[in-house]
Simulated scan of single mutants.
Amino acid sequence: MRDVSAAEDALSEAFAAALADWSVHGCPDNPEAWLMTVARRKAIDGTRRRRTGEAVADQLKVMADAEAECWEAGDDEAIPDRRLALLFACTHPAIEVAIRAPLMLQTVLGVDAKTIASAFLVSPDAMCKRLGRAKQKIREAGIPFTIPERDIWSERLQGVLDAIYAAYSLGWSDMDDADLLRRDLVEEAIFLARLLAELLPQEPETLGLLAGMLYAQARCRARRNQQGEYVPLAEQDTHLWDATMIDQAEVVLRHACTFGRIGRYQLEAALQSAHVERRRSGRTDYAPEVQLYDALYALTGSPVVALNRALAMAELEGPAAAIAVFQALADDKRLADYQPYWAARASLFARAGNRREALHAYDMAIGLACDPAVRRFLQRRQRSMLAE
């Protein structure tokens, strides 16, 4: 349809029709084909309602051509998963670079605008407007959602990697067993990263992305105790970490390094590798972590990287050095509603003995925490401080 909003509306109507029809007549033999057929009919009806004359004929021709292209022989062989194909389609050069990953998260992976906004450190209102403008641009420019030729995949790779990484981060940040969407995002991201690594084995950044997610996922079981309470990284039982997954990540990262082209996701993976070093040696060496954060910050300029670098500095040099960085970050509006910033700030000021600043930061972190287990963890820390 070359109109994201209209396509979403048509598919929503198809799902509504399925709920009414299948409860009476049963589920069809091919439910996906049933949904697509009904969605196309709804789309045609919607086009006829919204347009007249030549505009209708032109739009219906676009839809017919797109359908033929979509199921052309060889498409599924080029990219064997339709979701990954759509991710590449969302990286069309006419779509603004900064909105590509959010657009993929919403249209392909079904993440709502408010959640996407939290991942990109912008307000929900601003993200909704950006997504709306992107969809309008697609409609007005007639941008086709077609699979690009293989020889230009590398040119569009960065946006796809960013979307997969953002999906994993969203799922990882609130890993609550009751939150099926978050768990699905984690599984989906790892699946797509594995598939991408198979399709583009000569791209070290795809390998770096996969390795980083495997390292992080290996620690998943240790993030909650038996009572379901949150356990920070420094206090996790390393015996609960998945040794096999860590070994897989090591192999993938080493292979990525053989290409001699270092990028963001390889550095992210190297940091994850440093985090799990405690499993092998029983201690954590923060000097390499600070160096890696330096390199990553030089590449990205991200305030989140600066935040994590400061935390590593605190372990290496004491809280005073990190607090100076945090004071500089306090003016960055992107961090105003970023819960990990306030949690880290509370911990640092508590260690430095600044009770007033620590309590204020705890209040902010607790108020912004979406995960109930994290909220309870911060409340325990705050109560402990008040009892001193």
Rank of each mutant, 00 (worst) to 15 (best):
185 L>G: 00
86 L>I: 07
99 I>N: 10
100 R>Y: 01
118 S>P: 07
170 L>Q: 05
125 D>W: 13
145 F>R: 11
199 L>E: 05
80 P>E: 08
80 P>S: 06
194 R>G: 13
180 L>Q: 15
118 S>D: 09
82 R>I: 12
78 A>R: 13
126 A>Y: 11
175 M>A: 15
160 V>N: 02
92 H>S: 06
180 L>W: 15
201 P>M: 08
93 P>D: 04
144 P>T: 00
147 I>F: 11
92 H>D: 09
87 L>A: 08
169 S>D: 14
88 F>V: 01
139 R>G: 02
133 R>M: 14
124 P>D: 07
139 R>K: 12
212 G>P: 04
124 P>C: 06
174 D>C: 13
173 S>N: 13
169 S>M: 13
172 W>T: 02
171 G>A: 05
159 G>H: 03
124 P>V: 02
119 A>S: 11
166 A>T: 10
100 R>A: 05
197 A>M: 05
129 K>V: 14
117 A>F: 02
140 E>W: 12
96 E>D: 14
158 Q>C: 09
89 A>P: 07
146 T>H: 11
171 G>E: 06
109 L>Y: 09
190 I>N: 07
207 L>W: 06
119 A>T: 07
136 Q>H: 11
129 K>N: 15
145 F>K: 08
180 L>Y: 14
152 I>S: 12
156 R>A: 07
176 D>C: 11
104 M>E: 03
101 A>E: 03
156 R>P: 05
125 D>L: 12
191 F>V: 07
88 F>H: 04
104 M>I: 06
160 V>R: 04
200 L>H: 07
102 P>T: 03
106 Q>G: 09
131 L>V: 03
161 L>S: 01
134 A>W: 00
137 K>E: 15
143 I>L: 07
155 E>M: 10
128 C>R: 15
78 A>L: 13
205 E>D: 03
135 K>Q: 13
169 S>C: 13
81 D>T: 04
180 L>G: 09
101 A>L: 07
91 T>E: 12
166 A>E: 05
115 T>R: 10
178 A>I: 12
193 A>V: 03
163 A>D: 01
187 E>H: 13
139 R>M: 10
